[in-house]
């Protein structure tokens, strides 16, 4: 590990200023992703700016019914909050489907959204990776691509975003509160993470020095109260998603009044299935309609063929997972 200095400011603006003054400084929250990458040599910061004193650990309800989650709230505390569990079940379920009890106690809300991909070539500083350096090629396209993207990828990167929480936040239309050098701003979660395009080094739209201060969950619509998270993985616990779905459904008189579908493990960002949602609104809440809708969404899929393991299997896996999850939300057996 390269040497670095450590600072623990008492004001959020000082944390932002410290990063702005030093392009090689990084924020430290729970450290569960950053420390791993420091040891692996994936990042080599000059300075760590600990944000634990400047990010709130409170969950507060605003006058308009919004639930504001401080960026410092631990993942385990977020999942245990009774308001989150009752009003936004997909959010609690998504957190509980990820990592382990110890990691959820450490991981922060802000850090969770900023965690980097689990592409094994990204984590291995000895293999070329365009996300680590724009001068290098992508090793995954011709390599082990089993965990990689089927939607929205580019020539330069086929990585997926690993956060379970972020997928659920997309389904409930969360808003990310950010403090930057020019003041505070709000970014809808659907616009927070990026597709790789020709610059996969950037996972999100944040600029260096932008601090996530809170995540707002808007007052829940009926489809959000009736939501859940389903994750498919290689083992039953303590593994990243092959694919996942955060879904919410409101059915009136057998007809879909409102539906939310966000997919994990399929793209560089949590994938809001807007085509499927539009296809379902006003349609009967049946397996046939669910299947037709997600099939329409996946028409854009471009699976990666690779001798070391491709990812075409994700198309039927996502299809089945979405159909069974929506069936469960409609009152059937999932």
């Amino acid at each position: 590990m390269k040497p670095f200095t450590y600072a623990r400011p008492d004001e959020a603006s000082d944390a932002v200023a410290a990063l702005v003054a030093d392009p090689d400084a990084r924020f430290l929250a729970g450290g569960t992703n950053l420390l791993d990458h420091l040891k692996l040599g994936v990042v080599e910061p000059s300075q760590l700016v600990d944000v634990n004193r400047v990010t709130s650990t409170e969950i507060t309800e605003l006058d308009d019914g919004t639930l504001r989650i401080g960026a410092g709230v631990a993942n385990s505390d977020l999942a245990a909050d009774s308001r989150v569990r009752r009003r936004y079940p997909a959010v609690a379920a998504a957190i509980l489907a990820g990592a382990s009890g110890q990691l959820r106690n450490m991981a922060s809300t802000g850090g969770n959204l900023l965690q980097r991909t689990r592409c094994p070539y990204f984590a291995d500083a000895t293999t070329p990776c365009t996300k680590r350096s724009l001068d290098e090629a992508c090793s995954a396209r011709e390599g082990w691509a089993r965990y990689h993207a089927i939607l929205g990828a580019s020539e330069s990167c086929i990585a997926t975003h690993p956060s379970d929480l972020a997928v659920a936040l997309v389904a409930v239309d969360a808003q990310v509160q950010v403090l930057g050098p020019d003041g505070a701003r709000t970014i809808p979660i659907g616009e927070f993470h990026r597709l790789p395009g020709d610059d996969p080094t950037r996972d999100t739209v944040l600029e260096h020095g932008d601090l996530v201060t809170a995540v707002d969950l808007p007052a829940p619509a009926p489809a959000v109260t009736n939501s859940t998270y389903r994750k498919v993985r290689d083992r039953a616990s303590y593994a990243f998603a092959l694919v996942s779905v955060a879904a919410g459904l409101e059915v009136r008189d057998g007809v879909v009044a409102d539906v939310r579908i966000a997919l994990g493990g399929v793209a560089h960002k949590p994938w809001r299935a807007t085509t499927a949602e539009a296809a379902l609104r006003g349609r009967p809440a049946t397996d046939e309609e669910f299947r037709a809708a997600i099939t329409a969404e996946l028409e854009a899929a471009e699976p990666v063929e690779s001798p070391l393991g491709g990812n075409a299997y994700k198309i039927p896996l996502v299809t089945g997972t979405v159909v069974s999850t929506l069936r469960g939300l409609a009152g059937g057996t999932s």
Binding site: L28, L48, Q102, M106
Partner: peptide, 27 residues
């Protein structure tokens, strides 16, 4: 493992179980 994957380093910090291998001492 020293990378947060095995739990062998688990301790209680201020009453909560955490992984000491992914915790910076200065923090």
């Amino acid at each position: 493992c020293d990378h947060g994957q095995c739990g062998a380093c688990t301790v209680l910090v201020d009453g909560r179980r955490v992984l000491s291998c992914l915790t910076l001492a200065v923090a």
